[in-house]
Structure formats: C-alpha cells, structure tokens
C-alpha cells in the first residue's frame, strides 16, 4: 500500500511541471517567436553580459516573443531546443554547451522550417544544418594582439606567453598568431606557460615569477585573459619591474573586463583585446532586415591601447564591474 502511494506521488511530481508548462505556451500574434538556448550567466562575467544582451534585445518592446533556457548541461539544452521546435518558434538561437550531439535536433528544426542561428559557440555539424552563426574569431583576436606586439617598435621582442585552458578554442586561436610569429623569427618566446583550466590568476603569477627567478629578460607579457594579465602584473610589481605605458614590460590582456580597460586607461597596462559577448543586437538586425546571412560570420572586435581608449568605449563594450575612472586594480 505504502509503495503504491509513493508511486503515485512520484508520478504526480514528475507530471506536474509538464501540466504547468503546457498551460504557459500561449500564442501571441504579430510577434516574432524566438527560442534561445544559452549557458547560465553565473558561468562567467562574459556570459552574464551575453545573457543580459539577449534579454534586452529580444524583448516584447522590440517585437519579440522570446523564451530562454540557460543551462550548462548539453542534454538539458537539447531537450529545451526540442521543446522550442515543438512550440513552433520562428528562430532558434543556440549557444551550445557541447559542440557535438546536436545533429538530430538541428535536422528536425530544419524540417520544421525553423531558422537556426548559432551564437558565440559553434557546433560540430554539417553547414547545411544551420542557417548562420555569429561568433568571435579567436584567431583574429590573436592576430590583432600579435600585430600590436610587433608594432610596438621594440628592438627585440622577448615575450612571456601565458595561455588559457590548454586545447580550448580561445587558447588555440589566441596562441596561433604568436607561435607563428615566433616561428618566423619576428619575436622570441622566453617563457611559455598556462593559467590552467580555470585561467587562473595565481598560476599566471607563478609563470612570471618563475621567469624572473630564472633571470630571463623579457619585455612583453601576452596573457590570454584579463585575470591572468593581472596575475602577471602582480608578479612584476612584487619583483619591482616596471610595466605599462612608461615601463619596461608591455602588457596585453584579453576579454575587455572593465577593470582591465581602466588599467589600460591609467597606463598601468598597455592594451586589451576584445572578445565580444554581445551578439544579440547583430542577430536582431539580421532578423529584422529579413535577409539572413548563411554560414559562419565573425564579429568585428576592437583592440584598445592607452592611446585609443575612451570612457565611452569602456562603458559600451566592457564587461563586469567598473571600478571607476583612474582606479587601478592591482
């Protein structure tokens, strides 16, 4: 008897959300229906900015009836996408947690006449399975940053490379140009380290401390995100090595955290390379214009130096908290 009651309870528990959500799917006429499958904002400041842009662009005021699922679990993401396909959305926007396992879902969306747009992250699938993708080109970011290093006019470039998570798309893309330049003899990599899987500030600091302890002579730090650049600069500070605009060591970070941009503005660092999380506006422009591009599209991204940085740009493109003008984050 007890068992049966328990069974019924469990069934009710499982079924109740289905019933609740079935009631929630209402038609709204005249609106463009969009289903957004994204990663959770607490993943990073970058993702927070990304989700925020999605929320503000795909709003009722802008003529969208948008539903959003934010999860880091690929299975849940696929389930959500299938739900949106059943709901009959017009556009399905996906930033996948995992690049594989999406083929069936994408095909069924295509069969249902739903346009799939990937944003921020690509999926390993046939190009025919999605309409368009808008992503950051990590290799482009690496190119821009390396061009900047080469254009500094240093007699001899001795560079410390601090990579992100080994094998991640960002690490591969951002390393490629530097490694190529080193291979061509345009610069010398005196230390090659990584911040590990968490792009760790502490690990980056250790890489630079090890280089200093080994008596290496270096004048450029190329850190593949802002946190690691910060760790590297902490190591320089502790060792009494000058850096920044009027210093010996030139420092570049990535990602456009506002604290990093303020450091660049103050001349404490030298440059920062953007990785733009705000694809929403561009995608909305595509949808509204009625002519969707096809295939992979890359975003244009900025590299700001102590000379080109302005308050407006920091406000518009930065991510995470702004420490305020003139405040240096050490």
């Amino acid at each position: 008897m007890k068992k049966r009651v328990l069974c019924i309870l469990v069934i009710l528990l499982v079924a109740s959300p289905l019933v609740l959500f079935a009631g929630g799917a209402q038609e709204e006429s005249g609106m463009i229906k969009v289903g957004i499958v994204n990663l959770p904002p607490e993943e990073s400041g970058y993702r927070q900015a990304n989700v925020e842009a999605m929320n503000s662009v795909f709003s009722k005021e802008n003529g969208y009836d948008a539903k959003q699922t934010n999860t880091g679990d690929n299975t849940e993401q696929i389930a959500a996408a299938k739900g949106y396909i059943r709901d009959g959305v017009d556009y399905l926007l996906i930033s996948a947690a995992n690049a594989s396992g999406w083929d069936d879902t994408l095909k069924s969306a295509k069969d249902a006449g739903i346009k799939v747009i990937l944003f921020d992250r690509l999926i390993d699938t046939d190009k025919a399975n999605f309409q368009a993708a808008l992503v950051s080109d990590m290799a482009y970011e690496g190119d821009m940053a390396t061009q900047w290093v080469l254009s500094l006019g240093l007699d001899k470039i001795n560079l410390i490379l601090i990579r992100g998570q080994m094998g991640s798309a960002a690490e591969i893309g951002r390393s490629a140009a530097v490694l190529k330049a080193a291979g061509a003899g345009k610069l010398k990599i005196v230390a090659d380290g990584t911040g590990g899987d968490s792009w760790s500030l502490e690990e980056a600091r250790k890489v630079v401390e090890a280089a200093i302890a080994a008596g290496k002579d270096f004048n450029v730090i190329y850190a593949q995100n802002d946190g690691m650049a910060q760790g590297a600069v902490q190591a320089l500070e502790a060792a009494g090595i000058s850096h920044g605009k009027s210093g010996k060591v030139k420092v570049i970070g990535f990602d456009f955290n506002r604290f990093a941009l303020r450091n660049v503005q103050a001349g404490y660092w030298d440059a920062d390379m953007q990785c733009n999380p705000r694809q929403a506006a561009e995608i909305s422009k595509w949808i509204k214009s009625g002519s969707l591009p096809s295939g992979i599209q890359y975003q244009k991204e900025l590299l700001l130096t102590t000379d080109t940085i302005t308050d407006e740009l920091i406000d518009q493109w930065g991510i995470n908290a702004d420490p305020g003008k003139g405040v240096i984050t050490r």
Binding site: P40, N257, A321, P323, R330
Partner: peptide, 26 residues
C-alpha cells in the same frame, strides 16, 4: 555555491581597489 557567490556579487565581479586591501594582498 558559486551561483550563490555570483548572486552576492550582484552578477558582476566587484573590484576591491583600496589601499588597505592592497596592502593585505601584498
């Protein structure tokens, strides 16, 4: 737990740019 910390942070990573903090860290 990290989601809780993220909420406490107000979804941003706040900066601790004061001299005393800096001296405690260095």
């Amino acid at each position: 737990g990290r989601s809780i910390a993220f909420m406490i942070d107000g979804k941003l990573s706040p900066i601790l740019a004061n001299d005393i903090s800096n001296q405690i860290g260095t």
